[in-house]
Design a protein around this nucleic acid. Sequence first.
RNA 1: GCCGGGAUGGCGGAAUGGCAGACGCCUGGGACUUAAAAUCCCAUGGGAAUUAUAUUCCCGUGCCGGUUCAAGUCCGGCUCCCGGCACCA
Length: 820
Amino acid sequence: MNDYKVKKSYPFDAIEPKWQKFWEDQGLFRVDVDNPVSKYYCLVMFPYPSAALHVGHGRNYIIGDAVARYKMMRGFCVLSTMGFDAFGLPAENAAIKGGLHPKVSTLNNIANMKRQLHQWGCGYDWPKEVISCLPEYYKWTQWVFLKLYEKGLAYKKRQAVNWCPSCQTTLANEQVVDGSCERCETKVIEKELEQWFFKITSYADRLLEDLSLLEGWPERVRTMQANWIGKSHGVDISFPVVDEKEPLHCFTTRVDTIFGATYIVLAPEHPRLGSLLRAVDNRAEVERAVSGMKAQDIITRTSTETEKVGVFTGRYAINPMTGEKIPIWVGNYVLMEYGTGSIMCVPAHDERDFQFAKRYSLPIRVVIDRPRDPLDVKSMSGAYVEEGVMVNSGPFNGISSREAMEKIADDMEKRKIGKRTVNYRLKDWLISRQRYWGAPIPIIYCKKCGIVPVPEKDLPVVLPDDVKFQPTGVSPLKGDEGFKHAKCPKCKSEAEREVDTMDTFVDSSWYFLRYLSADDPKKPFDSKRVNNWLPVDQYIGGVEHAILHLLYSRFIVKVFYDLNLVSFKEPFQRLFTQGMIIKDGAKMSKSKGNVVSPDELIERYGVDTVRLYTLFIGPPEKDAEWNDQGVEGAYRFLGRFWRLVDGINDWNVEGKVEANVLRRMAHETIKKVTDDLEGDFHFNTAISTIMELLNAVYQFRPKDETDRALLKECAKTMVLLLSPFTPHICEELWRRLGHKASVLKESWPRYEEKHLVREELEIAVQVTGRVRSRIVVPADISEEELKQKALNDEKVKSWIEGKQIKTVIIVPKRLVNIVI
RNA sequence: GCCGGGAUGGCGGAAUGGCAGACGCCUGGGACUUAAAAUCCCAUGGGAAUUAUAUUCCCGUGCCGGUUCAAGUCCGGCUCCCGGCACCA
């Protein structure tokens, strides 16, 4: 920032705090949730408490606040709430590095964020605030766990995790850099831990089906969710194993290619592997290769770029359709998480299998052919994955592969060698975290009674404050004897607590219900209230949450629905995902050092300027580049606006704009702004239309009382239209225009159709698609007259002279195209 | 790699298949001023022709091709960039 003082265009520093206090004192954002009349639940994704908000964060809250204010003016009873997703890894990591206790730093951060939100003029029903790291909240997160446990939807199983042997801790995929721990660079290994899961897979079908109910969601988010769930139909085929009783199961979506299955590949983690290798001579060698594959991370393994590596187990299976003996391999590109962890390989018709077969010289057999251009194995450079005609497939030869898909499945089901199944890519939700700063999982392990849930009356299982944060990576809870010690709720004997905490996504999967009963000590939420208020009318947040958070929230709500706790199937009626704010080509973040602090900007220009620029910067669903000079433009506009409405402007221009044009523009502006707010929240175009209106007003010179009344009407309209975006200046100007009540209590301006009508239109005249002239015609001209007028235009004449006119296309109110 | 999205002047962006570049920024010029700031007005995609200084023409929406009277917009094939990928939230 330059050090000279800018002369203020208007006294924002005096008016902004004044109106913030006014809204707060008047309780304009407080809602009596038991008496909703035309309710509107406007929800912004609650944030993780970071040290200070930058202008990139601001976009989310400013959009939410603009929507809430607009809906209030439309007469809705708007509930707009705020809370904090306060558990999480960064606060704990900071504590380990010698920083403050997570509870202290988190609550400090929350206090600062609340100061900033207030400073931004964002109105919330603060008494309903929720903070997920406080026992009053996480007591009920634990209750959610118990409900899922009762329903059989929470279970324990062994699962491989990324483990750093030096830090003695679990790592997220993002903490693994090139196979090593990001902190100490030790090689990361796979380790199996007993962990808690939520059975989201049993809701896979409903989560997929009900996407069709979500018409108010962006199509891309629905597509991403559908792909994430990844439903596929196929056949589970039993392959008998030579010298074994138990067959191997392979799931395939391409049963039509079964006659071309020339080998089988197992995932390195496949449970049958140990027994299959028992009697194999080079067992040690094979196992070494297998552990090498396990060391690769998932992203590398599934990449088609990564070299497919494998090892032959020395064992064989039987292709149940051909009766052939086919080898069983282990390969890095097969994942235990998907399907059955073993695949039948058809190199001629699957790209990955093709690469693998080439590398290890495994047989390739074409079973689906292209009739026009038959395939030849010797010359194939890749797999043929399209449909075609069956060949080399015994009784199925000659029919189409599509038809064969059904016939072969029927045949296999009849002979009991295969079964049609549905498979999902979606995995169960792993909720265990070996960390301190999260809600403890309410489970007790008793030597006699086994796994015993903590009874509801004993909740919350309180997170002990007095723990040691050490850089060993071991969860502080694990070393806390006082916490670990518990009495079995059933038999009262000595027992141990679960020391893992829950994934923070559990906290955030139900918070929108808690807002309605934030201070209720007896229950997590009130069914009657949530049934009145939900689904959320408008949910607003970052597109980075398009899959996980939204899917988990949908899942938990469906579980509550099944428990008769709520009467709605989906939590969020409409979803808006806003884009990120970019600075110098990268996402704004503290670590990249490209953050723009709102505090300085607010001091210099006032918060309405920052809000206006944030909304004007671009279409809100797209990423946008922050530009400090653009802020200046927003500030200039507000100064112009202020001077006009406050009446101190004595512009001395000729009246270029006529009264009837100005009136029409005013009504067009109301229509455009309203349409933008009712549609996709394109604040940028709404604001630019208001700017055009202001520019026109500056070109208008009132001549008489009628003109002055029109001018005043325009001023009033602009104050109301801008008030959701820049509420402080508008609240102030509204008073100066002589009104007593808050703009929020005012109703949204209406436009009149009769004022939108134009008397004359400018029509473009094209000659074979190129604009050659423009003509002004009466708005009610007939097509024939228009055509004649176009043909007789001087400029047009010179282009069509001596040419034959093929046809004339007329687009009403827009153009005439003369095709020669 | 897989899934989703994007690419338009010097910059952010605007455009129901129908006049590309609204609005804002930057820049240049002018008015006001002792001067500056602020403010107000005008110009502003690139190239060319004419000097009649107003107008005309040509080229332009990441790249290659197609459909159409007409394509930033639709179709096919690429390139590059961004988000998510299950322990960041």
